[in-house]
Design a protein around this nucleic acid. Structure first.
Lengths: 185, 185, 185, 185
DNA sequence: TATGAATGAGAATTCATTCAT
DNA sequence: CATGAATGAATTCTCATTCAT
């Protein structure tokens, strides 16, 4: 059952407004989003009962893109490159979309869609890791449960890093350290 | 000018109470701390104008210990071991004292004492890094501004990591990855 | 002008749903009723502009039954028994149908039908009272405007009464007190 | 430990304002009371965490007076008169102070003081009933758990009663019915 | 200096009713 | 006629901070 057209318009309006909040680092309060979207409070609450629901919705496109990337990656020939590519993509997604940081760091999800995507991402990441490990490109004691946390840690480190250095440059330098460290014990 | 004796007693009482909050993961609200310490709110506010001031005060002993460790480390012969030892100490400090996580991740400090300690820590870390790099134990593109962020990232990664695995074990595994990665590009 | 068939179906559906709410002690909110009846809110509002309109409609069958009882009662020979019988019926109606309590306690009605029924009930009650009084079965200072309030009071008393005693038993005991009291000053 | 003077002033101000609301039949909303009392909301919430707490506090003086009456009544010689007198006092209290109706009809209390007063009232009422019953002035099947409910029922009946007749007159007429009814089955 | 009462802006949420589809 | 999305005022409650005692 699909959404009514006007409802869909509001839904999108709210999501877009929420995204602006996220991008500008403003805490996503449902009331404020409603005001900024020129929409009744209850309209927001109807579509998104909690801030988490809205945040997950905002993150969904990026998450889907990341999952799509992972799905392409598992078909690549070069296991090591595919693996590294996914990690890069995971970091870039977090750099490009601030809503991805909570989405990836969270342990639980309120939307089934998000939970499902996260699940697929974990599965695919695990498969890529296995292949990379089999190819001798990853040390054996690193498990698939480590990868996303480590990528979140990298992003966190970048956020903590002071200095005016370009965030992306720092990120990739840190990733390089990580990748090197992941190779051999 | 030193504190009056009763004032000092209250000061300590508040700090101790605040530590209990930190240890138990309860958000350090000045009002609540006051209640728990059986002390007037204003008393807390006089000693610690903001939650940050209290948090930094709570973290100070651990921070001092870490600085002391760094000061001993710079005198060690084995530059590589000294360097690794400091990183381990930094992580352990954050594991053992929850107030160290904000204290190390923060970019600014409200207390001069904390700022000064952080400064010394940065200087000493930089010196250890230089020696380790000179000894060929660290890749050249890693700067002293990277180390603390990376250690904070490790702790963050551990926090994100699901599973029931022992936190300290995970931490040390991640540190091992980091150290390996830091060695050679 | 009669209702369209589908409209009539919805009308009944809404009334039935409303009754379920009343029976289960759930406050009759038009929105909630609509949801429970799987019907649009506006549909409910068109049929029943206010909660009162719905409540009165829900109460109507019981009210009609009570009026019917009164109509039979005025034809009975034994004036005292007829009178007592009506009071019992009034109480039982309130015990059996929770929507009758507001319907009988209300001073005003939004539906003409309810107002009319109430009117007939009052008239009949008055006539029964007169006959009972004429037969020397009721003290003279009690007027017909007293009877329904007193019955509502009995029900209220039963509701206030704590204890696990059977509601109907308590009601009839209280009614017995009332009837005795009504007999002679 | 007694209240600070300014706190006591506000406490009283809030209670007085609350009483005005009760007297005028305005629902006692903590926020509105705060506005009307020209006092911060939180001040009201500090003193009275819930509307019930405020309502019970408002009712306390009348409740105390009623208990005091009951205490004098148990020492009276004429058991029947003492018993009737208490019932009259119970009704008058509810007529004179609107906050007494919820206070007497409630089954539970949030303030220990109110619970205690209610308890004493129940005990004393029971004792008066026993004496009256022993004196042959009350039918045997009426228990002490019936009296307060019945008095609440009387008040309810008076409220339901339409007409312009004086409330107190109606009340006493109804009480007369009750008392007669209570005498002999 | 110590106390803790007071403040009031602000955040979260609900609900009766209207209106576009 | 039917739908159900939208509205936004109203309500409840919390919390960081100030100020009178």
């Amino acid at each position: 059952m699909t959404m009514r057209k006007d409802a869909a318009r509001n839904w999108q309006l709210i999501v877009d407004t929420g995204r602006r909040f996220v991008d500008e680092g403003i805490p996503v309060q449902l009331n404020e989003v409603a005001r900024a979207a020129s929409v009744g409070v209850a309209t927001v609450y109807r579509h998104f009962p909690t801030p988490e629901a809205l945040l997950e919705t905002i993150a969904t496109p990026s998450l889907e893109a990341l999952v799509a990337h992972a799905e392409r990656a598992v078909t690549e020939d070069d296991a090591g490159a595919a693996f590294a590519g996914l990690l890069i993509a995971t970091l870039d997604a977090q750099l490009d979309d601030a809503s991805m940081q909570p989405a990836l760091a969270a342990g639980t999800y309120v939307l089934p869609r998000t939970a499902e995507l996260r699940d697929r991402l974990d599965t695919l990441t695990g498969r890529l890791l296995d292949r990379a490990r089999a190819a001798g490109r990853v040390r054996p004691d690193v498990t698939d449960a480590d990868l996303l946390p480590l990528m979140c840690g990298v992003i966190f480190a970048v956020r903590v890093h002071p200095g005016a250095e370009d965030r992306r440059a720092v990120t990739h330098r840190y990733l390089d350290v990580m990748l090197t460290g992941l190779r051999r014990p």
